[in-house]
Amino acid sequence: MTKNAELKGSSFTLSVLHLLDDDLDSALQVLSDKVTQAPAFFDGAPVVVDISRLHQQPDFITLKATIEQTGMLVVGVTGCKQNTSREAAKLAGLAVMNPAKQTRVNDPIQTPTKIVTTPIRSGQQIYAKNADLVVLNHVSAGAEIIADGSIHIYGVLRGRAIAGASGQKEANIFCQNLQSELLSIAGTYWLSESIPEQYSARPVKVSLQEDSLNIEHLAL
């Protein structure tokens, strides 16, 4: 029998917009400012909206339409505490998502480190699933390297580096020459203008501490 479709599990990198209070206008202004800083990166990017800290149920249709004016695509919501919120989100065409629980029993099997020796050019994407990623060359602007574990770049990093893509907060990014468009660990990210100038074009280590990115000089 010929298969017309096949359903398989997979994993993708999603940004999460955390709404910290009911002042949605201010939150959306912050989001618009972020998108303006890197429009190419956010154009068509999927986003999940976390409403767990809101005191009132938002108008999901209006929320979705407003966010999508920035060019991002709202694919779902998380943090729905009431069934009425879940149903309203579904009626707005949004998936209701629950954060994955971190359990050691269900941790994926770690696979051997993925090693790339050639330059990673603009438009390319390299993904090390359940593994660390080592790049022995340069990462061009417009390129993207992703790893569920840590990332090591021995050339110049001008593109985007996303470590801990499956939520591993212990992941790190090690870089010999930092000129990155974006750094991310376990969903927490910095755009280029957020990276302190004293670390530009220097060897660095980037880690996640108390849900914030931390950067330090790497002694060679």
Rank of each mutant, 00 (worst) to 15 (best):
Met1Ser: 15
Met1Gly: 15
Ala5Pro: 00
Lys8Val: 15
Ser11Cys: 10
Ser15Asp: 15
Ser15Cys: 08
Asp22Ile: 04
Asp23Val: 01
Leu24Gln: 12
Asp25Phe: 05
Ser26Ala: 14
Ala27Gln: 06
Val30Phe: 02
Leu31Pro: 10
Leu31Gln: 05
Val35Pro: 07
Thr36Trp: 01
Ala38His: 04
Asp43Phe: 05
Gly44Pro: 09
Ala45Glu: 06
Val47Cys: 04
Val48Asp: 01
Asp50Arg: 07
Leu54Met: 15
Gln57Met: 15
Pro58Gly: 07
Pro58Leu: 03
Phe60Asn: 02
Phe60Leu: 04
Leu63Ile: 06
Ala65Asp: 12
Ala65Glu: 10
Thr70Tyr: 02
Gly71Arg: 01
Leu73Trp: 00
Gly76Ile: 08
Thr78Glu: 12
Gly79Phe: 09
Asn83Glu: 15
Ser85Tyr: 03
Arg86Lys: 14
Arg86His: 11
Lys90Ala: 05
Asn98Ile: 13
Thr103Gly: 08
Arg104His: 02
Arg104Thr: 07
Arg104Lys: 12
Arg104Asp: 00
Arg104Ser: 06
Thr111His: 06
Pro112Thr: 08
Pro112Val: 12
Ile115Phe: 03
Gly123Glu: 04
Gly123Val: 05
Gln124Asp: 12
Gln125Thr: 13
Ile126Asn: 02
Ile126Val: 11
Ile126Ser: 03
Tyr127Met: 05
Tyr127Arg: 15
Asp132Ser: 11
Leu136Asn: 13
Asn137Lys: 06
His138Asp: 14
His138Trp: 01
Val139Pro: 09
Gly142Lys: 01
Ile145Phe: 04
Ile145Arg: 06
Ile145Tyr: 01
Ala147Val: 09
Gly149Asn: 08
Ser150Arg: 01
Ile151Phe: 07
Tyr154Trp: 13
Val156Asn: 11
Gly159Trp: 04
Gly159Val: 08
Gly159Pro: 07
Ala163Phe: 06
Glu170Tyr: 03
Glu170His: 09
Asn172Trp: 00
Phe174Tyr: 11
Phe174Pro: 00
Cys175Ser: 06
Asn177Glu: 13
Leu178Ser: 06
Ser180Pro: 01
Ile185Met: 02
Ile185Cys: 03
Gly187His: 11
Gly187Ile: 04
Tyr189Ser: 13
Tyr189His: 11
Tyr189Gln: 07
Trp190Cys: 08
Trp190Phe: 10
Leu191Met: 04
Ile195Pro: 12
Ile195Ala: 07
Glu197Met: 00
Glu197Tyr: 01
Gln198Met: 05
Ser200Cys: 05
Leu208Ala: 08
Leu208Arg: 03
Ser212Ala: 06
Leu213Gln: 10
Leu213Ala: 11
Asn214Met: 09
His217Ile: 11
Leu218Ser: 04
Ala219Ser: 14
Ala219Asp: 10
Leu220Ser: 11
Leu220Lys: 13
